[in-house]
């Protein structure tokens, strides 16, 4: 045991990790907090927008266009732009706003596509049985669109974990800090530790989302279609 510890201690990133455990824990907490608050707000906002452009398809072109453009802005530039806007500045508001904007395309697009691709005969039957528009949307359409909507949220969330790293430049005390400082101090170990922890979180969240999906998506939709 002692021997194994000796060997591991020789590996610089591991030693760095344990030497700075409390700082890294704080960074991780901040990182997760930002991402999770970001994703919750993004879901509330973008799922609604997705439903709206489904109801008013005339808007869909414009909205999805904007979402694609936002996606193309380099994240560092987006943080920079937000920084200069009145009311934003350095800190959480700007960081959250940027994350939410990046989640726009995957969530809005998936909601829109998912709602559109629900089998029309299912909706016809629902309406024919006397369900109101709202009942059809919430009880039939959204549950059936869930696999695709969920896939969009999953992509957005994993992406947000990565993009949150850059929020360190506008004052977030998160894992990005390790990378940022590693670069300015030419300290590869710091960079490696930062990158690895961020990746592990991203992978972990992705796995967690996979499990969550199994519960949130109806079992009936996870079955193979019989011939």
């Amino acid at each position: 045991m002692e021997f194994l510890r000796e060997i591991l201690w020789q590996v610089a990133p591991i030693r760095y990790f344990f030497d700075n455990l409390s700082r890294i824990t704080t960074y991780t907490q901040n990182h997760l907090e930002l991402t999770l608050v970001g994703v919750v707000l993004a879901i509330i906002l973008w799922v609604s927008v997705g439903i709206i452009i489904y109801r008013y398809p005339k808007l869909s072109h414009g909205v999805l266009g904007i979402a694609s453009i936002v996606m193309c802005i380099p994240s560092i530039a987006l943080y920079g732009i937000l920084l200069t806007l009145p009311g934003f500045g350095l800190g959480r508001t700007s960081a959250l706003t940027a994350l939410i904007l990046y989640a726009m395309l995957p969530i809005v697009r998936n909601v829109f596509i998912a709602l559109r691709s629900v089998d029309p005969s299912i909706l016809d039957a629902a309406r024919g049985m006397g369900m109101s528009k709202q009942e059809v949307l919430w009880e039939v359409q959204i549950p059936n669109a869930m696999p695709t909507i969920f896939a969009g949220v999953r992509v957005a969330l994993v992406m947000m974990v990565g993009i949150a790293t850059l929020a360190t430049y506008i004052g977030e005390q998160n894992l990005g800090r390790l990378i940022q400082h590693g670069i300015t101090r030419t300290h590869p170990t710091m960079i490696i530790v930062g990158a690895v922890v961020v990746s592990i979180i991203a992978i972990g969240i992705d796995l967690l989302m996979g499990l969550l999906g199994k519960h949130l998506i109806s079992k009936g939709l996870q079955l193979e279609e019989s011939k």
Partner: peptide, 16 residues
């Protein structure tokens, strides 16, 4: 519509 049974070729059962 609730007082009118409705059956279509594609059935349209709710898969979820």
């Amino acid at each position: 519509r609730r007082d009118i049974g409705y059956v279509i070729q594609e059935v349209g059962l709710f898969p979820h």
